[in-house]
């Protein structure tokens, strides 16, 4: 269930270009969050909350980790919060990743940019269940790369940058051909998700979506997406943000 909680900032640091990692302490959200869920944060001086995915959960320390990219005034203000300050959040929100995978299976994680963080939480949970993890992480340039080491600790990890300044050059879809896996999970910009779901058509997969949200609880109909059978819609904040790859029309 979603609660309105105060989260204490334990740490906040820039880990890549324009990218901030923040560790937040809260017993309720750290206890109940599952991989793929998000928190909806209030930022001083801003009307709308910001939906930010949960990148890691530490139930012992009662913390969650979020990563966000400084893009506009809201994320700029959020990045300026100091350790010890509190952030108001609704959460844990949304439906996360389907975790039922058979032991010994191989799972492919494909992340693009600031879509990478929720996959880390997922990868950790799956690796702990004895599942093999392959990660393909795409970034604009080498300056934006983060969490390479953390993903490598989970399994084979391929870094791709658009300009080739780090890792492979190109797009995440360029390196998928030789990979063998049972199911994939992906999160990133919509064009990337379109390219991946097209390329991996027929494969069992799940996508996590981002959209501008209003209420974040399913009441305002701001973040809807049509379903693929042409009949109806889903709310990204409440029914998602994770959907089966063939469920919604990207």
């Amino acid at each position: 269930m979603i609660n309105k909680e105060k989260l204490r900032i334990v740490s906040s640091c820039q880990i890549a270009k324009d990218t901030v990692e923040m560790v937040l302490e809260n017993d309720y959200i750290s206890k109940h969050a599952t991989p793929g869920q998000f928190v909806h944060l209030t930022v001083d001086g801003h009307t709308l909350r910001r939906p930010i995915s949960i990148a890691d959960i530490n139930r012992e320390q009662q913390t969650i980790t979020i990563l966000f990219k400084i893009i506009g005034s809201g994320t700029k203000r959020l990045a300026a919060y100091q350790v010890g300050e509190y952030v108001d959040a609704l959460g844990p929100s949304g439906n996360g990743f389907q975790l039922e995978n058979h032991s010994g299976a191989t799972i492919l994680l494909v992340g693009g940019g600031i879509g990478v963080p929720p996959l880390y939480n997922l990868g950790k949970a799956l690796a702990a269940k004895g599942i093999n993890i392959i990660s393909v992480l795409g970034f604009q340039t080498g300056d934006y790369v983060f969490y390479e080491g953390k993903f490598k600790a989970l399994g084979q990890t391929i870094i791709v940058t658009n300009d080739g300044s780090y890792g492979e050059k190109g797009f995440v879809t360029d390196v998928l051909d030789d990979l063998d896996f049972d199911r994939y999970y992906t999160c990133g910009p919509v064009p990337m998700l379109q390219a991946i779901t097209t390329k991996l058509k027929g494969k069992d997969g799940y996508i996590s979506l981002e959209e501008r949200m209003g209420c974040g609880v399913g009441a305002c109909f701001a973040c809807v997406i049509p379903v693929n059978d042409g009949n109806g819609y889903k709310k990204i904040c409440k029914d998602g943000p994770v959907f089966h790859a063939e469920e919604v029309a990207l």
């Binding site: 801003h46 009307t47 709308l48 809201g74 959209e211 501008r212 949200m213 209003g214 305002c220 109909f221 701001a222 973040c223 809807v224 997406i225 049509p226 819609y233």
Partner: peptide, 23 residues
């Protein structure tokens, strides 16, 4: 009624714009 395409909301100074479209 399905309403308008997304994005349907945007933040403004001390407010927001919406164009849900009576879904």
């Amino acid at each position: 009624r399905f309403g308008n395409p997304t994005p349907r909301v945007a933040e403004t100074a001390s407010g927001m714009l919406n164009a849900i479209g009576l879904q």
